[in-house]
C-alpha cells in the first residue's frame, strides 16, 4: 500500500510528514496496518542559530544582517527561475530564524548558484547576497558533507587544492584534478577535450598557462589565507 494511502486529502501532505510502519507493536499491542499512520507535527520548536553565528562571523557572510527580505535577489536570480527550491532570500531567512532542518534539506540545492552576482548588484540593502549564499553553502558543507553531490564536493576540493598549491587557477589543471577525483579521468581524453587541448597547444595558450608560475611570495600569502580559514 502506498504511504499514507488511508488519509483523506492525502494530496495536502508531503511524504516526509507521514510516519507509517509495516508492523508496529506499542506496549504489547499490535497496531500494524493502517491504524499506525501518524503525522509529524508541523510546529517548528527547535531553533538552531549556529548557522547564523557562523555566517555573520565569516568574512564573506557578514552582510547577512543587512537583509530585509524584500525578495529582489530571488526576483533577479539566474538560477531561481530555473531550479525549483533555489531561493537566496529563503536561505538567508532560514539561517536567521534558525531553521536548520530546512537548510539541511536543501543543502545540495544551494550549490546550484552560478556566482553571477546579479543578486548582489540588485540588493537595495547592500547585502553581498552572492557571497552570503556561498558562506551558507560552506557552513552546510561542514555540517553535512554527505548531503552534497559528489561533483560539488570534488569541485570544491579541486579549487581549494589548486589555489593552495599554485596560487592561481588554471582551467586545464582544475579540470584534470576535478575529473580524476570523480574517477572520470577518461573524459580528459574524450574527443571534446582532446580537440580543445590540441587547439590550445597550437596557439600557445597551453604552454603559457603551464609556465605562468606562482604569484610572488605565494608561500607567505598562502599561509595567511589558509590561517584565516576562509578558502
Amino acid at each position: 500500500m502506498a504511504k499514507g494511502s488511508g488519509i483523506i486529502e492525502r494530496s495536502l501532505l508531503q511524504d516526509d510528514q507521514i510516519m507509517e510502519e509495516d508492523n508496529l507493536v506499542m506496549d504489547g499491542i499490535d497496531i500494524s496496518g493502517r491504524w499506525n499512520t501518524m503525522l509529524k507535527t508541523r510546529v517548528h520548536s527547535e531553533r538552531d542559530l549556529d548557522s547564523w553565528d557562523d555566517v555573520r562571523a565569516s568574512a564573506i557572510g557578514e552582510s547577512i544582517d543587512n537583509c530585509i527580505q524584500c525578495g529582489m535577489c530571488t526576483a533577479g536570480c539566474t538560477v531561481a527561475h530555473e531550479v525549483p527550491g533555489f531561493n537566496p532570500r529563503q536561505f538567508i531567512y532560514w539561517v536567521r530564524v534558525g531553521r536548520k532542518d530546512d537548510l539541511i534539506k536543501n543543502a545540495d540545492i544551494i550549490w546550484r548558484c552560478v556566482g553571477c552576482y546579479i543578486c548582489t548588484n540588485h540588493c537595495p540593502k547592500e547585502v553581498n547576497t552572492a557571497e552570503v549564499i556561498e558562506s551558507i553553502g560552506q557552513w552546510l558543507r561542514k555540517q553535512v558533507p554527505e548531503k552534497m553531490d559528489q561533483a560539488y564536493l570534488a569541485n570544491h576540493e579541486a579549487y581549494r587544492h589548486q589555489l593552495e598549491t599554485y596560487g592561481r587557477l588554471s582551467l586545464p589543471r582544475l579540470q584534470a584534478e576535478f575529473l580524476s577525483k570523480l574517477g572520470r579521468q577518461k573524459e580528459l581524453f574524450g574527443p571534446d577535450l582532446r580537440q580543445a587541448a590540441i587547439r590550445m597547444l597550437k596557439d600557445g595558450r597551453a604552454l603559457k598557462t603551464l609556465l605562468i608560475g606562482r604569484p610572488r611570495h605565494w608561500n607567505r600569502s598562502r599561509s595567511v589565507l589558509m590561517e584565516s580559514g576562509q578558502t
Binding site: 524584500c70 526576483a75 533577479g76
Partner: peptide, 20 residues
C-alpha cells in the same frame, strides 16, 4: 516582493519579481 526588473514582451511591460 520587490521588483528586480521590468522588461517588455509583445508590447507589454513584464514585471520580474519574487512573491516572498
Amino acid at each position: 516582493g520587490r521588483i528586480a526588473e521590468v522588461t517588455q514582451k509583445a508590447g507589454q511591460p513584464v514585471l520580474k519579481g519574487e512573491d516572498t
